[in-house]
Amino acid sequence: MPVETWLIFVISFMILGSIVALELKDILSSIIAIGIVGLGVSVSFLFLQAPDLAIVQFLFEIFALIILVRAFIKKDYHQEEPSRVNKILVGVTIITLIAVFLLSVNIFKSLPAFGKPLMETSEYYLANGAKDTGSANLVTSIILDYRAYDTLGEVTVLFTAILGALTILRIKSRSKDSVEEQL
């Protein structure tokens, strides 16, 4: 079977999982149903021959699942009342989305065929990447040599995010002054 058939199968499985996650009443079951979506993204990366991305996506799926279960499994979790649905607003939104989709059909037709990007830089990387950098894994040679500025930005974002999270959590816990000495 071609890879598109497998992708359509995986994506429809993901859509099914997210619908199940929305409709379930139990919060733990919905978290596990959301896990289907992340796993499906990981499997579709494997079908598209991107094992680097598939590994990272799979690991972060496990990480997010642990954090979500830890956060929501407490007894004091307060479930909000479902808000009333404005039917006119939903209808207007759906009609607008369909109109935008129909208007952009020409743009979709002008895109290159699936799996055939016409990029000159990627052809350069495939031809000269191993010779230029000495790295056998081309993905690593791109993210740490050709595009190392991008990785530097990523490191800075991670550093700032961790710093901000620690600062906010310390301010919250200082009011009780029992947890403060732990950090």
């Binding site: 830890r70 740490l144 190392a148 990785t151 991670l158 550093f159 961790i162 999270a165």
Partner: peptide, 26 residues
């Protein structure tokens, strides 16, 4: 650079999860 990023990501993610768990007891 891979070793540096590995040290950074592993320690950073663990410290954040640890801080979140402390926050939860509080």
């Amino acid at each position: 650079l891979n070793i540096i990023i590995g040290a950074k990501v592993s320690m950073g993610l663990f410290v954040v999860v640890w801080a979140l768990s402390i926050f939860h007891i509080d």
